[in-house]
Design a protein around this nucleic acid. Structure first.
Lengths: 156, 156
DNA sequence: TGGGTATATATGGGATACCATGGGATTTGA
DNA sequence: TCAAATCCCATGGTATCCCATATATACCCA
């Protein structure tokens, strides 16, 4: 399965609602998640969002530290402190919270970008900049030019 | 397993639809993929399209990086950001999106070119130019004139 | 062998369903 | 009690479904 693919830009209405792209809703439904899990990305000015697949990925990170340790608590607090679970209304829309607004700079438009197992929520202009940057970086990664980057295996 | 072979040129109708060549549809059906996976080719002004076989090749590159890391995010955005999953209607047609139009220069005709495990979507004129170039290169390779490409071997 | 018919494919177009979006009405919560 | 969130319905635009037709290919039978 392809998961979340492609990107879409939708308008924010006067009440702070925005339609989640229908293809993304279909992926969430298939994943069997009620609503949405959203967490501020640690790397960039975007919000990571998704269903069970994203949630279990994050949970897996936490599980690398045994519970009852300060490390575990600190990480849990850092992760879940910037998380929320927006509701999806009957028309497939979600509310953009103040936390999301602050992290992303979103005002009147929202870009949804598919990353396979999750998608990201961006302010459209920042998305364009970030994607241009990501493309350059991807080129380097795929050519195996970046040291410390796992095992490229075979170049394209 | 022949995969996608030969090439076909079909007309784009007023609604932006084009028939996927029947032989290609047969390959997709055998592959068991719902719809189609399409990604802008990094090398040339064409779109790579296919089913599970193409998708898993892309997925394989991503799997070299662990999720939730900046590298993975950047690569996912670069790859999936220029991807889409067009639907195939009951008559075997797909829509040509704006993204595909911009990348390829397609206006009223579409050339589908089989490349075995995937096929490409071209603007007919550009396809002819590209193929002429590819033929020269192939000839050189087969003649053993290019160092580093010793044994052609004849793949399926 | 030749003619005629059946099947498949590409393509066009009307009708329908879906989707993003706006706004009123009702509920919730502090 | 007021503001905010949720539900519900309306609408315009677009994609999808479904049927019709033309053309080419395969098939059959005399």
């Amino acid at each position: 399965m392809a998961g979340f693919v492609s990107h879409f830009t939708n308008r924010l209405d006067a009440k702070g609602r925005v339609s989640i792209p229908a293809p993304f809703r279909a992926v969430l439904a298939r994943d069997g998640f009620e609503g949405l899990y959203a967490i501020a990305s640690p790397h960039c000015g975007a919000i990571d969002a998704g269903g069970n697949e994203l949630l279990s990925e994050i949970q897996g990170r936490l599980d690398q530290f045994s519970k009852l340790t300060p490390d575990h608590d600190a990480l849990a607090m850092a992760l879940f402190g910037v998380s929320e679970t927006p509701k999806i209304d009957s028309d497939g829309r979600m509310m953009i919270s103040d936390m999301v607004r602050e992290r992303t700079g979103i005002t009147d438009q929202v870009t949804f970008a598919g990353l396979g197992y999750k998608f990201q929520i961006w302010q459209p202009e920042k998305f364009r900049e970030h994607r241009a940057e990501a493309s350059k970086r991807a080129l380097a990664l795929l050519s195996g030019l970046v040291p410390g980057a796992a095992q490229p295996g075979e170049p394209a």
